[in-house]
Amino acid sequence: MSKERYLVVRTHGLMTHLLNPDRIRSWAMIPDWESLFKEISSTEYGVFLEKVDDLRSADKVTDVTLRVLGRRVRTFLEISKGDVVEEATVRYLAKYDVENLKRKIFSLLIRKEGVSEERFLPISGFMVSMDPILRASDVSQICDLLPQGKLRDFISAWLSSGQMNIPLLDIGIDRAYLAETIAWAEMTKMREVFRIYAENYALGVILRSQLTGIGSEFYSPMLEFLSQNVRKALSESSTFEESIKALLSTEAHKSMASELMEVYEKYGVPWTLDLSLFKELYSKIRSLARMKPLSSIFPFSYIVAAEWESWAVRTVVLGKLSGIESEKIYDMLSLY
């Protein structure tokens, strides 16, 4: 059996350990904490939960969901060792390193009390070892710790420019990460998945920039990661509303744009943007994996599914903790 087939078979096995998304959604309707605890305890998450009160701590819940995701990622990386999927997983999950890196840099630049330096995943860094980076006392030290590449080049150029422009740094880090990732993916059979991922990621940065009122001169370099028709639609839009209207005309993002428009009109703010983007990414990769069940895309889709599961469990528990209505939590977790 080839490595690829072996991985597909093993991933099928791993997939059976994932919770059914509908089951997680149904937890939103559980009225009391005891029953919810009983339900969650019977899953893999139960290993990290000792008592009902653990569910009442947002930090604990976040930690538990990330620990389970970390375990799943570790197992997957072990079985995919040496395959292109391993590298694809590492490059995909490097987004968490990018996030941690940003937090560390922001905390050093802004220097405020109560800065969170925890990792998203309780496992070592994917792109770079995070421990020395989290111990760094200034940004130039971080720069030296980064491997040679676009990210390191960008951060050192930003530092030498002397500008303290946080949005520029923020978008620049994302751009460098995406450019490196897509350059690698284009040379592999994972290009299709990574094109979807890069477009989804870039779209998020562009739309969030428009929401925060950041000028197009900052976010326009992200347009290079979009497919031709999406780029064309967005290049003429300067506000969030215009962009969503433009996305409604594209086949690729119609469902997401219509959901966002609905939320935007109802609440005046598109608070579900990240959720919608992630749902779109998960839905697209899942349908691509279904279309090519014996390709490397299927094993890769496991990571995105595991991430969705972790995200959904956290949303149900934190949603209940925040007093959000059950129906709203249920709706939030619907897939396209």
């Binding site: 947002a58 930090d59 976040t62 937090r103 922001f106 905390s107 802004i110 405020k112 109560g114 800065v115 969170s116 925890e118 998203f120 946080i166 609440y267 703010v269 608070w271 579900t272 990240d274 959720l275 956290r314 949303t315 934190l318 949603g319 903790l321 925040s322 007093g323 959000i324 709203k328 939590i329 939030m332």
Partner: peptide, 21 residues
């Protein structure tokens, strides 16, 4: 209520990052 929703969707770590920025 939007802050509560953000807390549920984004989690406490993201809220801390927002506080930092």
């Amino acid at each position: 209520s939007m802050v509560k929703m953000a807390y549920a969707v984004a989690g406490p770590q993201e809220m801390r990052k927002a506080a930092l920025l």
